[in-house]
Amino acid sequence: MLLDIKGLEVKLEEEDKQILKGVDLEVEAGKVHAIMGPNGSGKSTLSYVLSGRDGYEVTGGSARLDGVDLLELEPEERAAAGLFLAFQYPVEIPGVGNMTFLRTSLNAQKKARGEPEVSSADFLKLVREKAKSLQIDPDMLKRPVNMGFSGGEKKRNEILQMAILEPRMCILDETDSGLDVDAMKLVSDGVNALRDAGRGFLVITHYQRLLNHITPDVVHIMSDGRIVKTGGPELALEVEENGYGDILGEVA
């Protein structure tokens, strides 16, 4: 199993607030899983806990990537192991150029995996090619990371990072929010281009719209810190039409 989450329970470190109350989720290599669910149900928390953000305490359960215990690893080790999170709110970093950021990230991962670093020339070529396919203006690459980027540009920048880092397991947290129709298509094409037998996706979204472009194999509904229902693509359509009321009523 590529990503294997069992009974994951998470509370906030600072407060006595349980957010994840036993999440069970398996993502196989080659598959796209979608997670939908009401605001505040714990979707972003799940993605942050998997990527190793501070501020949470795991009180139970496990999360493994290719059999490796993710929760034991530092965030950078998880990245080197192949985990990638496209942030719901990408972070602005003044003073750090986008190119420096991309190259440092790629080389850090390569180094951690014992692979040779990429040369400047190869790196430039790689970035130019990927940026072009996402229609990212080369000028944007010269600016500091996400500084002055529009909401949609930030999301495209996340996908650019994903395309360059080529992670095994990609988590996309509301990458569709803030995207116009054309950008949604570009981003989806970017994701679809990466779909292959060895790679898994976990796509968090509120809208069926994205799933029209990135057809999921499995759809999960998350509510109050648990996966409460799992089905095929038709589950997303059901949410789109009727909201969460029926589904949540059914499982309650």
Binding site: E92, I93, G95
Partner: peptide, 28 residues
């Protein structure tokens, strides 16, 4: 900035290297 630090680390940059990068950015 802890958010910036986590963002860098989530991309594979080690804590020390990420801190140095952010420090250089500060002085830049």
């Amino acid at each position: 900035d802890p958010e910036a630090l986590f963002y860098l680390r989530s991309r594979g940059v080690g804590e020390v290297e990420a801190t140095n990068l952010l420090t250089l950015a500060f002085v830049a």
